[in-house]
Design a protein around this nucleic acid. Sequence first.
DNA 1: AATCCAACCAAATAGAGATTTGATTAGCCC
DNA 2: GGGCTAATCAAATCTCTATTTGGTTGGATT
Lengths: 211, 211
Amino acid sequence: MPRKPADQTVHRTDILQAAATVFRERGYAGATMADIARRVRLTAGSLYHHFPAGKQDLLLAVLNVGMDNVLAQLESILAQNLPPDETLRQMITAHALAVTQNVSVGAAMVFEIRTLISLAPDDPSAAERDAFLARRATFERHFRTVIERGIQRGVFRQVEAGIFTKALLGAQNWISVWYREDGKLNGAQIAAHMAETFLAALGCPKNEGST
Amino acid sequence: MPRKPADQTVHRTDILQAAATVFRERGYAGATMADIARRVRLTAGSLYHHFPAGKQDLLLAVLNVGMDNVLAQLESILAQNLPPDETLRQMITAHALAVTQNVSVGAAMVFEIRTLISLAPDDPSAAERDAFLARRATFERHFRTVIERGIQRGVFRQVEAGIFTKALLGAQNWISVWYREDGKLNGAQIAAHMAETFLAALGCPKNEGST
DNA sequence: AATCCAACCAAATAGAGATTTGATTAGCCC
DNA sequence: GGGCTAATCAAATCTCTATTTGGTTGGATT
């Protein structure tokens, strides 16, 4: 019954990607609905057809898309029940890779949390905001849990898991700030480096590569 | 000759601190001159007496204060010419401590760089902006240089110094996001953890503590 | 006691930008 | 073909804010 998605029709995901890009460039508060619209050849007003709740809604949607993706990967890795060191290596790699594959979304997840937090508690999207923050907490907990388990099993050196997790995630998040598609290293290489760095920090040196 | 700094007179540094705080809470674009002014019991317009160039000027000033502080400490450490591992440990500690001692300024340095970068090249404060970015690059180079030196001297494991530096600084920057004065650990403890983590990552385990 | 000036304030000014509204267009279904 | 709705746009609205302007005020200076 609805109109067929014709040639000119802009897809929801296009808008989200555009929004993420603009958020990264100007920050949420600095981003203009017109900026976002221009990127998909729409006018500012037209965005409200796709996202009735407006700018706020766009941000939440961008963040949720990113979180969906990462969380799904992490949980798939965890389900394999590998030893802590291997699990952590895969988690770090997957996360870092996800960030390099969509830097804009990654950046939004880093830089715009503040925007969410300073959201008035009576704001209409407060509920959705809370839901996102909860998933974000889960994301972090996954990492911490693996680290704690590794310590208990004696695979990892004794570290304060809370801080270590923060350090790890800070380093990973920061990738979205400096990564360049045309840089010296690609996403996979960076991901590997990150994993190696933090496993080494846990006293778990790489299982001897080639010579 | 000027009026005596009487009771009500607000000091430049007070305004800067207020600005940093508001920037942290709302982000630069989201921060209001009125917000900042209120915090020091002034009106928005009055801020222009102290910072004629306005909001932009405030941001740059905040960032510069932070950079002055950190850079001075780093350079003082470097001047001692200690071995790479000890130098790095002190640098990490000093930096982390600086962040916890003034989280608002630390957060500004992390989150508002984007604001500077997206500044039009013909903006009046473009020059000052460039100067800041240059100092920021110096800051990062200090870390990388020490790491590279450590690798050459065989004190550190072989790592890709560029990425490792980014990872380290990402982790350090992130402190300004999660640190709470009333948290479980104080600044010094966090700083120590960070140093230990990254030295371990460089294959340079702590020089045997107690027990 | 007359002047000066830093430090303020209140009230414009000037725009920018999110959101709303009323129309328009083009496939789809009958 | 006629009617329906999704997808758009252009042109208001309506606020919110940076910045400017003109005026006070009170201690300093002389």
